[in-house]
Design a protein around this nucleic acid. Structure first.
Lengths: 156, 156
DNA sequence: TATTGTTATACTCTATAACTATA
DNA sequence: TATAGTTATAGAGTATAACAATA
């Protein structure tokens, strides 16, 4: 059975008075920035029938697919039992096809459909636009440095 | 009744292969960085009987208290029904006291105890240390710029 | 025996609705 | 009527345990 939550969340970013005591703590800044950005990204993806998690799955499958559900789950860092519902939803929208693998008949090969590729293209455009708008307050140089710093923190 | 979850989460930051397709997307970078940092912060706070949310509450109460539960909830951007359990936990540890307000006998005044102030001092030290370790890969200038950029994105 | 996909189940987090006591 | 705190409840998200089919 597919998950069908799709409930519009409250605007977390604007519903509270910013606590001055926390405004200089890295954890607070990261958390609030992440939340604010994800809200806008989900908003931009909603008309396409995607959320950020499904967008990520579609992106990975398109670049590196076909993959099994287990392999995809590992790539996204989620449990394989959670992946069932995620693929149900992608398949329900016609973005992905489950094909039994010839080599290993326990596993599926997840194939992105033509419709899936079309929606991914639009989703990429939408999220690139969101990112640009979100980074508006920063100069081009500051944007580059922000992303570089985050990458260094993650991948070093 | 107080919440007593306190379940050690999996190490989300290290359990997956970084998908190259996502490594340049702002949303992915913010999400992973936030998660990785919060894991370390929760780890550092756990011996003190705190998690990041309770740490924030204690911080706000110490700087701007006494506050009512509603006022504190508004400051933290959470629901007042959720605040009940949070204060239960803080009171259970002896970090905070509920005193009936004289002016408005429906409301409490939340007072930080001496024990609460002691633990907050240690919690601040622990999280400052965590932040420093986390930002290690960056130069002093890069750290300043990272936090400044995040603040600009949030508060402008 | 181990692994893939699946279901049932449970746990965490959080919010809504409804209650009480005060205002 | 409205608000502070509380409880019961429900929903969303995600994980663990157990199962069938296959390796």
């Amino acid at each position: 059975m597919a998950n069908e939550p799709r409930v519009p969340e409250k605007d977390v970013a604007s519903r509270e008075t910013p606590p001055r005591e926390l405004a200089d703590r890295l954890g607070y800044l990261l958390g609030r920035t992440h939340l604010a950005h994800r809200e806008r990204a989900d908003e931009a993806l909603q008309p396409l029938g995607l959320r950020v998690k499904e967008f990520g799955a579609l992106l990975i499958l398109t670049k590196d697919g076909p993959l099994s559900q287990c392999a995809l789950a590992a790539r996204q860092g989620i449990d394989r039992t959670t992946m069932v519902g995620l693929v149900d939803e992608l398949e329900g929208h016609g973005f992905v096809e489950r094909r039994r693998s010839r080599n290993d008949r326990r596993a599926y090969e997840l194939h992105v459909t033509a419709k899936g590729r079309r929606v991914l293209k639009r989703a990429i455009e939408a999220t690139v636009r969101t990112e640009k708008e979100f980074l508006q307050p920063l100069s081009a140089k500051e944007r580059r440095q922000l992303k570089q710093s985050l990458q260094r923190l993650l991948f070093i």
